[in-house]
Structure formats: structure tokens, C-alpha cells
Design a protein around this nucleic acid. Structure first.
Length: 216
DNA sequence: AACGAGCTGCGAACTAAATT
DNA sequence: AATTTAGTTCGCAGCTCGTT
């Protein structure tokens, strides 16, 4: 078996997002084919890619009984580092981040992790999407945080919108999107407020709501 | 029992690159 | 130039499992 350029890019991407479900894999495969994509590849195609990588020992996969989709992560051989701890509380969230990330790739963005927190009171976003030198911070939020936390986070994001960030986008369930918007109205200065947007695209299981637009 | 979602095996048609 | 090998894409049939 030979590793194509796209295979390597897929493994790099999996290494950044740590794990993905088949929804994420479908979009990432389409995106990395030509650098952009309007549609994901078929699930059949995505399964074949995963099967090929698994046979080569570069990814592992499992289909947990409580989740109707297969999830995939890179092995040590595939990513050069130890595999992620699975089945943690944050798994649903990480899979949702991967789903969003893959859609950014499909729009021609580069995806990377946010910088590490500089202090315990600091806040790290779920990812950075960059295109043409414009950087957008991405948050995925499936459940609301303690309301007091939004004061801190939105304060920090407001400052960063004054600096290196062009925009902040929250990808949420519709309910969470309402809360985030409301709290942003309270805590983000007007100059920056219109550059922090929310999108209600996930259901409560953290699955992309079929037909939801990816508006960036 | 019937249905839908998701996964796999298989076959077919295609492209790209390496080999002869 | 022809052949071989690897990869890409899709649809269909058949499977399991959970829901109606």
C-alpha cells in the first residue's frame, strides 16, 4: 500500500483534532482532495479510507454501542504520538470539534489548535481557522457553561478581537447558541460584539443537524 | 414484523504513476 | 506504447442493531 499526499494530510488532521467520527472523515476527505469541497464524500468512500488506514495500522476505530457512528483516531504509527484517551466525558465535544474543523477545511481554511492558556484564568478556544491571513477563533459548545464563566471568557475574547482575531464563531445547539448570544450581549463591548457570532447546528447528541448551513 | 441507520464485501469504471 | 499497480468513487446486496 502506498500513502498518498492526501493520506498524509488526513493523518495530520486527525493528529490535530485527535479523533473524528465518520461525519468528520467524510468532509475532511472531500476537503483535502482539492483543497475545498461543496459536499462530503459518501459514507461508503469514507469507510473504505478508514479500512485501508486501519489495515496499515495507522488508525484505529471502534463503534461504541451508545453511538451509532464509528469513531476513528490515529495510532502511534499514524501520528507519532500516543493515541488519545477514549471514552472520556469530553469525547462528544471533541467529535463535534472535528466535524466543524472538517467543514472549515472544505471552505479552504487551515485548521490549528488555539494557543495554550497562559494562566489558569485564561481560556483556550477549540481551534483556529485561518484563510488569507485572517484568523478566526472557533468554539464548539454543546452544553452551557456556568453563567459566571461567560464573563471571564467573553472578556478575554473581546480583548483578542482587539488584537489578532478577526472573528469568533460559536458552533452550538440552538439552545446553547441563544444563551451564548445573550451573555455576549452583556459582556462583549459593542465594537467587538458583531464579530462574535453563534450558529445552532448541532443536536443534543452532538451530531450535525442534517441540512444545517455551514455559514462562515 | 417492518423499518431505518450504519458498516462491509464485491463489482465496475475511472485516473495517475511506475514498470516493462 | 503497453502493461501493471495503486488509488478513487459509486451503487447494490446483505448484515446487525435499535426503534416503531
Amino acid at each position: 500500500m502506498q500513502l498518498t499526499r492526501r493520506d498524509e494530510q488526513m493523518l495530520d488532521w486527525l493528529n490535530v483534532v485527535r479523533m473524528a467520527d465518520m461525519d468528520g472523515v467524510r468532509w475532511a476527505l472531500a476537503a483535502l482532495k482539492h483543497g475545498h469541497a461543496d459536499n462530503p464524500v459518501t459514507t461508503r468512500r469514507a469507510n473504505q479510507w478508514v479500512a485501508r488506514m486501519a489495515e496499515a495500522g495507522l488508525v484505529e476505530r471502534v463503534r461504541p454501542m451508545y453511538r451509532n457512528r464509528q469513531i476513528v483516531w490515529p495510532t502511534y504509527a499514524g501520528a507519532g504520538r500516543t493515541p488519545p484517551a477514549l471514552f472520556r466525558q469530553t469525547m462528544r465535544h471533541e467529535l463535534a470539534v472535528a466535524a466543524v474543523s472538517a467543514r472549515y477545511l472544505a471552505k479552504g481554511y487551515e485548521w490549528s489548535r488555539d494557543r495554550r492558556p497562559e494562566s489558569p484564568r485564561d481560556h483556550q478556544g477549540d481551534g483556529l481557522a485561518a484563510r488569507g491571513g485572517v484568523v478566526e477563533l472557533v468554539e464548539v459548545e454543546l452544553t452551557t457553561k456556568k453563567l459566571a464563566r461567560y464573563r471571564v471568557i467573553h472578556g478575554i475574547l473581546g480583548q483578542r478581537l482587539n488584537g489578532e482575531l478577526a472573528a469568533v464563531t460559536y458552533w452550538c445547539t440552538p439552545e446553547v447558541a441563544r444563551v451564548v448570544d445573550r451573555e455576549a450581549d452583556r459582556f462583549v463591548f459593542r465594537d467587538q460584539r458583531n464579530r462574535l457570532v453563534t450558529r445552532g447546528v448541532f443536536d443534543n447528541q452532538g451530531r450535525w443537524i442534517e441540512g444545517s448551513a455551514f455559514a462562515v
